[in-house]
Design a protein around this nucleic acid. Structure first.
Lengths: 216, 216
DNA sequence: GACGACAAACTGTAGTACAGTTCAACTGTA
DNA sequence: TACAGTTGAACTGTACTACAGTTTGTCGTC
């Protein structure tokens, strides 16, 4: 332990900080799906140059939260049934692939912790927290694949999904959430991979249908 | 069929075109791994403004070919043993997940076509072409997962990989290439999923070792 | 040969300018 | 009233200039 542990200079650019900040705001719903990010307005409000904002938004594009349209600038992504399907299909493939593997002890522990956290969260009743724990549980499952690249990719899917969930403010009873995840968790814990895969598949099917209904 | 089919206006920005062009050059080896992309030099040479180049490079970042370092600008990604491992692990997980599924007839046809193309390419002796067909074959396998998002993700891995392969100009006899892929293809064609998975795994192992040796 | 000062090259950011595009409000017409 | 065409404000895409702060290579010194 050095005396300088934790000390760190501000090794980041203005554009990066802006991107992080904007990302947060978008996730919190400050900009709705389909909204345009107007460069001059943001630049003026935050007191930075327009090209810096432009760069920040390009960084934001990396995370998938906005996309560029020619002559319209950055637009916050909006959920469509097709996008929801594509998102959940990818999730389902990754999670079932993970569930077909035998987790290492520490991976099983991580999944167990994630499940316990989820149960706790449902008791507290904080909807946003439940969503986060829910997604964290699934991330822990994917981690069994032992691939950082896939972890990252899944995290980006999760980020998109979390955004959709936020803006759609899904309503689900905590008991349902726990029940659905418990069967998955039990199957994994008991090493019943076939059932884990089947339950995951069913869980994803239910979720995608619920979500698509919210879009009317 | 409309009378205007295929008619399209040039709906793209300068920055996007620059990004495409730069991507091509990098892939072709005009910039080696670890090289910096100097903004003013490129801007001057191409007769565009520096901020346009900056934007183009941010777009490039999306494809994963370069990454930004604070105060050093854009740097072409360089292969390290860890990166190679991470790349191949992700590939292996996706491909084996795909190989555990039963392909639909048209997917099997696509795989067959890809394999035939690969065989043809080895006969012609064009190394770059062989690499392309090789990767296309694997992409066809991943397509069995039926997920556009995963297809895209795999394509991005492929792009990185192809770049590494190009700069390392791997040498392998065409016969070896065909033989390795034939066992995989045969297993898939015959519906022997277990063997397909095993052969894919072995193939990836061999490739990653070869590639890591090239890095010394 | 290691060290440190110095200079050159470059990035990060600000700010201004302007042509071209989008979009919504307005206008005239059937 | 419905609709086509026009107009103008708002905004994007791009260029150019400027400068502080950082990195890096070089050169002289110990």
């Amino acid at each position: 332990m050095s005396a300088l542990d934790g000390l760190e200079v501000r090794r980041t650019t203005t554009a990066q900080q802006l991107a992080d900040g904007l990302s947060e705001r978008i996730m919190a719903g400050a900009f709705g799906p389909g909204d345009r990010l107007r460069e001059s307005a943001i630049a003026a409000e935050l007191g930075v140059a327009r090209n810096t904002i432009r760069e920040a938004v390009r960084i934001l594009e990396l995370t998938g939260l906005v996309r560029y349209e020619v002559n319209r600038g950055a637009v916050v992504i909006a959920p469509t049934p097709e996008k929801i399907d594509a998102l959940y299909t990818a999730r389902e493939r990754l999670e079932t692939a993970a569930a077909s593997r035998t987790p290492r002890p520490e991976q099983l522990e991580a999944i167990t912790r994630a499940f316990d956290d989820l149960v706790d969260a449902t008791k507290s009743g904080d909807v946003q927290d439940v969503v986060d724990r829910d997604l964290a549980f699934h991330q822990a499952i994917v981690a069994v694949l032992d691939s950082t690249r896939l972890d990252e990719f899944f995290a980006s899917l999760t980020k998109e999904l979390r955004f959709y969930l936020t803006v759609l403010s899904r309503q689900e009873t905590p008991d349902e959430v726990v029940a659905q995840h418990r069967v998955i968790f039990d199957a994994i814990r008991l090493g019943d991979r076939e059932r884990a895969v089947a339950e995951l598949r069913a869980h994803v099917d239910v979720s995608v249908e619920q979500l698509k209904q919210l879009l009317h």
